[in-house]
Write a protein that binds this DNA or RNA. Structure first.
Lengths: 407, 407
DNA sequence: ATTATTTTCTCGACAGTCGAGAAATTTAGT
DNA sequence: ACTAAATTTCTCGACTGTCGAGAAAATAAT
């Protein structure tokens, strides 16, 4: 059932429109906001007055005095309007960042992480401690933290902040909502890491060529294989999702995967899988928990020097990825693919296999190869994706709650 | 970029809300509309007055006088407000239906279709003739036909009415927009057949249990394999898509498919594929263009009587479908699957293979089997899907254009 | 006839957007 | 120093839209 519409909703939507313009283009004057949002000047006056009264934006006194006429006064977000904590869980540690409402990094530290697979509860308490620590270091009151944005590798629930499956804890689900809610009243968001990479790339894409952006997929290569998709939905909204690509079936009854299933893509394209194949270890042996990257570099060097089995291992990995991507493209529309993660350094060895694997499917033969770009610096994109998503959620919530709460 | 919102848009949205309520529940009185839409009584008065002036709805004089109090006057769509032509292209013919704005079937006929694969142009002219014929039989002026809704098997363009690939014409694209635009000013919509089945099932689902509907997939089994997905997007909108499932890669370098590729799902689960496998024909032989269903019935009978190779053929088909579905579920969230099409009569033979194929993947092992229902009467659903989609598009367009065009 | 009941319609209040033009404020020119 | 031009921001009135409350309408029961 459709939901009814009212004039208050109109104001809300237009207010977040103004905040989004401010976010994208930095401090803006009345006139510039009107240009970007296509709203009339009178409306801008009304909205900015409201937002200023609600202490969400402020006039920035500094202006360049560029030309004659009445000087512009630009608006910008109030930094102290609210704060965001970004928690990035990676295989060897957890990074905590405190960011203000304008997107500026205020504090950041890393904490080591035990590799105890059974320690899901202990891990949750360590997260709680980390959050407590970044709060106490900042000396901010807790209610100023409006959102906690968490990312991890693995499978996340489509709507709730629940880590459904992860490389380290397996099917030991972690529900961050119930774990953090007693202490924190902040909104809690969980994202798959590659999903956030896709979000960042999508935001970037839409800034550079806004018209023809429709969809984009990010493929992260590493110990595990991640995929994120960003799609432009109606009304200029972007929708991001994180399919379980790494554990999609590549080949029935194929190699044993870390997840316990057989024939997953990861069981051919993950770092441990490449190692296993290169060393001609039987495909049904329990895979190594963790592979030092130097080990894989060695194999790559051998492959580049013509060692048959090493080259074969990379080629098989490429084929698994290519077949998987071709299946993805059979189920979605054609979209460009950005490859990220530590595995990009082996792209020269993977490429042939990827193209071979892609070419085996009807869609690809019909529509041609998708555009593939290699984007090595993954960690920056993950953080950008966090900010992009979290700050626009905060904008939404501030507008929804903050307007009537004005003094 | 988000798009701005205004009060006129609010009225438009609420107007289609009223029309949608009328569509779902039949003729409704003022009070009932207010109940369904949650709009205030005053707003209903304003909107219904506008729609009545624009000749989109009318008061229905017939009322039951049920109890005391001022009797209700119910509104209903004006049948003559506009018309819709539904064109259903199937393997053996084309069905033309004329439907009025209230969704009532007015005229219908079938026309045979030549099986000439090269005759794409001739086919287009036959469609043009069919449309001309249904118009002349109705004696309606052409501009009263607001929408032409076409469906076919095969791959349709996500946004334009272009048949990108079809079992009969292959990669001979058919652009219905450019083919029909010179004669017709009606909006032209093209849908994949199974996509429309999904649309109908989704509409049904949302009527019965509106709250927890999130997504649904329809799988059509026949000479070719079709898949349609319906997903509830934000604001109660439903989004439908038609992935190229039948030609998704099942097995690299597998059996030869009608499309010319190797290893498509269809090359294992299409009727011709089952026949080929049962008769132990080599998998690289050019598949039969068309298989009489009696032929397949015979094989099914043999399989049910214990004939090994026939049973094996159905089981292989099931596995191909199950693997494909498991891959679909790896890339989307968990959703129920409705199986339709002539192939449902062999579901007893396919089922084991489908479950085996599904069970080989990580997601299914984690989340359990998806719900599978068998829905045999496909053709009714296709027509319902046409109406569901087309009439709501007409509602939209009438509201957008018709309001200022009032007298 | 009168009263109770139910539905529909109408009115005034309120929220929102827009265009036009007034007010403000600076630079350029004389 | 003063005026004119330019440019930005602010304000006002008109218009559209939704809502709640209550008036008006129309029927059944008494």
């Amino acid at each position: 059932m459709l939901t009814k519409s009212s004039t208050e909703l109109v104001r809300q939507r237009n207010s977040v429109l103004v905040l989004a313009a401010l976010r994208r283009h930095g401090a803006l004057a009345h006139t510039e906001i009107a240009d970007f949002t296509k709203l009339s000047s009178a409306t801008i006056s009304a909205i900015t007055a409201d937002l200023e009264k609600a202490q969400i934006i402020e006039k920035s006194e500094h202006q360049a005095a560029s030309g004659r006429g009445r000087p512009r006064v630009s608006f910008r977000q109030r930094r102290d309007c609210g704060y965001l904590v970004v928690v990035i869980i990676s295989s060897d540690g957890v990074q905590y960042s405190l960011v203000d409402y304008a997107g500026k990094l205020i504090d950041r530290f890393n904490e080591e992480r035990s590799h105890d697979p059974a320690g899901a509860e202990r891990f949750v308490t360590s997260i709680r401690e980390g959050l407590a620590r970044i709060l106490s270091r900042s000396k901010l009151p807790q209610e100023k933290v409006l959102l906690i944005s968490i990312s991890s590798k693995g499978l996340v629930h489509p709507t709730e902040p629940v880590l459904v499956w992860s490389p380290i804890f397996g099917s030991n689900q972690i529900d961050f909502e119930s774990a953090l809610r007693p202490e924190w009243q902040a909104r809690i968001l969980l994202g798959n890491e590659t999903q956030l990479v896709a979000a960042a790339l999508g935001a970037h894409e839409e800034n550079t060529r806004p018209a023809d952006f429709r969809a984009l997929a990010a493929l992260s290569l590493g110990h595990s294989i991640g995929l994120g998709i960003v799609r432009s939905a109606g009304q200029g909204e972007r929708e991001i999702s994180a399919p379980n690509f790494g554990h999609m079936l590549h080949m029935a009854n194929g190699g044993l995967c870390r997840c316990g299933s057989k024939g997953c893509i990861e069981a051919y394209a993950g770092f441990y899988a490449i190692l296993r194949m290169a060393f001609e270890v039987p495909l049904d042996t329990i895979p190594a928990k963790f592979v030092p990257i130097a080990e894989l570099d060695k194999i790559a060097a051998q492959a580049r020097h013509g060692h048959r089995m090493s080259a074969f291992a990379f080629r098989q990995a490429g084929i698994a990825l290519g077949n998987g991507l071709s299946r993805l493209l059979s189920l979605t529309e054609r979209m460009p693919i950005a490859i990220t993660g530590p595995g990009t350094r082996y792209y020269d060895l993977l490429r042939q296999g990827i193209e071979e694997g892609l070419g085996q499917t009807h869609v690809v033969r019909m529509e041609g190869m998708p555009e593939i770009r290699v984007v090595p610096d993954e960690s920056i994109l993950v953080f950008e994706g966090h900010l992009d998503r979290a700050l626009s959620v905060i904008d939404q919530e501030l507008v929804m709650s903050g307007i009537q709460g004005a003094d």
